[in-house]
Amino acid sequence: MQPYSELFKAGELVFAEGDAPTCAYLIEAGRIEISTTQLGEPRLLAELGPGMLLGEMAVLDDSTRTASARALTDCRLIPIDKAQFAERLAHADPVVRALLMSQLTRYRSALARLTGEADGFDAAPTMQPDDAYALDKIRLESDLRAALDRKELEVRLQPIEEIVSGRIAGYEALVRWQHPERGAVSPAEFIRLAEETSLIVPIGDYVLARVCDMLVELRERGRKPLPFIAANLSGRQIDDPGLVQRILDLLHARDLPPDKLKLEVTESLVMDHARIGDLIAHCHSVGMPVALDDFGTGYSNLGPLLTLNFDQIKLDASFIKALDRPRGVAMVGVIVGMARALDCDLVAEGVETREQREILHRLGCRYAQGWLVGKPLSLGDVLEH
């Protein structure tokens, strides 16, 4: 179906300087001349063609038209109303929105100077709450880059217990950031920020290298058997075709066995079966295990477990909290049986009480992780235990 469009004959005015901004236009065909009046004389500003936007500036800041638009040839324009712009702008990234409005302010200021109306233009509009948030986000991103360069991000280890023996079989690597002014920054905040940018890849590489160094220190301190350490992967890391080889290079440089570094993939990423399947196959070909993290967090689908050969399933803490109810015990028991049938180890996350651990023991769950087992520790604290 063809989108609704408006036709303008050559020489016809689309809108005039001073008009209210009822809509913007996408030029589908033809050419448009943009002009303004400078000191009483007409001045050509631009000539626009197919695929270009027309009149969007006035719509964005809801101000009167500062230039006129006239069809140079017969034109077909698709109107874009103010509501469409407002909706998209409201859902845009705050940083992108702030940058856009900053550019718009500069444009208005330059145009005002050009037309001799600079005195009537406020070049320093009041900062809105969203603008302050966006600027703070930009500052935090810059600080995060600096912290990564200075190796100020700390990798902590949360212990994972083998329930039957009571021994610590491994750890999950968790990255933490102590900001010099803000104090501890929530991992949810800075990891989300890193994932919105290219930062997540170097941060991921930093964590993987640190994990390998930690395994070396554990080995040198006589830890036998050497525990495994699990590290989470982001979607951007998984997209990198050189990821597994880089990890192997890290391991080989330190003479570490590949089965001691376990890669974790969150459940939200497994919808792309082909991509995750290729990653698992590549990892298995070099002896590196892969775990499905956060199973049961809202994306639960048994389909991926039929086609993706995970070595371990990490059960979300929400299931463990439900162990105080018969239905919760029954559900976890079913998941334990499923993991056993799939030849997967099961790790219960968020274990906080002895009663939860005892139920998991009775159900046959192999591993427990949570504050009952231990909080995330520095490597120094791990070595002292």
Results as ranks from 00 to 15, higher is better:
Leu279Trp: 07
Leu248Tyr: 03
Leu26Trp: 05
Ser285Met: 04
Ala173Thr: 01
Asp136Ala: 15
Ser142Trp: 06
Glu384Trp: 01
Glu196Thr: 06
Glu267Cys: 07
Leu26Tyr: 04
Leu99Val: 11
Glu28Cys: 06
Thr105Tyr: 03
Tyr171Ser: 06
Gly298Asn: 12
Ala231Tyr: 01
Ala147Met: 04
Phe295Ser: 11
Met214Lys: 02
Asp293Ile: 12
Arg254Cys: 01
Asp239Ala: 15
Asp205Asn: 10
Thr64Gln: 12
Pro79Arg: 03
Pro180Arg: 09
Arg223Met: 09
Phe310Ala: 12
Thr266Met: 04
Ala71Pro: 04
Arg325Asn: 13
Met288Ser: 06
Asp259Tyr: 14
Trp371Ala: 08
Thr307Lys: 15
Val351Gln: 03
Ile276Asn: 06
Thr36Ala: 15
Val382Tyr: 03
Leu13Tyr: 01
Ser234Tyr: 09
Asp278Asn: 15
Leu193Lys: 07
Gly166Thr: 08
Glu355Tyr: 06
Pro326Met: 00
Ala209Ile: 04
Thr297Asp: 14
Gly337Cys: 09
Met331Leu: 15
Ala90Val: 00
Ala173Met: 00
Ala134Phe: 03
Cys344Met: 13
Ala20Val: 10
Leu269Pro: 01
Pro42Asp: 08
Glu196His: 06
Gly296Ser: 00
Arg65Asn: 08
Gly337Ser: 15
Ala209Pro: 00
Ala134Glu: 02
Leu157His: 00
Ile359Lys: 15
Glu352Gly: 06
Ile160His: 07
Asn301Phe: 06
Val351Ile: 04
Ile200His: 04
Pro180Asp: 03
Arg192Asn: 11
Arg113Ile: 03
Asp81Ala: 08
Arg150Gly: 01
Lys260Glu: 08
Asp62Gln: 05
Pro50Ala: 14
Ala291Glu: 05
Ile359Glu: 11
Ala194Phe: 13
Gln158Val: 05
Val270His: 09
Phe85Met: 12
Gly183Leu: 08
Glu172Phe: 01
Arg362Thr: 14
Arg76Gly: 07
Gly55Val: 06
Arg275Ala: 10
Leu379Thr: 05
Glu17Asp: 07
Gly116Tyr: 04
Glu141Lys: 07
Thr297Ile: 10
Met57Leu: 12
Glu217Asp: 13
Asp130Gln: 03
Ala24Cys: 07
Val286Cys: 15
Gln178Met: 08
Arg70Phe: 07
Gly235Gln: 09
Gln178Trp: 10
Phe8Gln: 03
Ala348Ser: 11
Ser102Tyr: 02
Tyr133Met: 14
Asp345Phe: 11
Arg354Cys: 03
Ala20Pro: 12
Ala184Ser: 13
Pro304Val: 14
Arg65Trp: 00
Pro202Val: 08
Asp294Met: 00
Lys82Pro: 03
Gly183Trp: 06
Asp122Met: 02
Arg221Lys: 14
Gly51Trp: 00
Val270Ala: 10
Arg362Pro: 02
Thr297Glu: 08
Gly328Arg: 04
Pro304Met: 01
Leu45Cys: 07
Asn232Pro: 11
Glu355Thr: 12
Arg150Val: 01
Leu305Asn: 13
Gly170Ile: 01
Arg76Pro: 01
Leu306Tyr: 09
Arg108Asn: 15
Glu87His: 13
Ser68Lys: 04
Asp93Gln: 05
Val244Lys: 02
Glu47His: 07
Thr66Val: 09
Asp343Asn: 13
Ser165Gly: 13
Gln356Ser: 03
Leu215Met: 02
Leu383Met: 07
Arg362Glu: 12
Gly170Pro: 09
Val336Asp: 10
Leu218Cys: 13
Ala188Pro: 02
Leu256Val: 09
Ala24Phe: 03
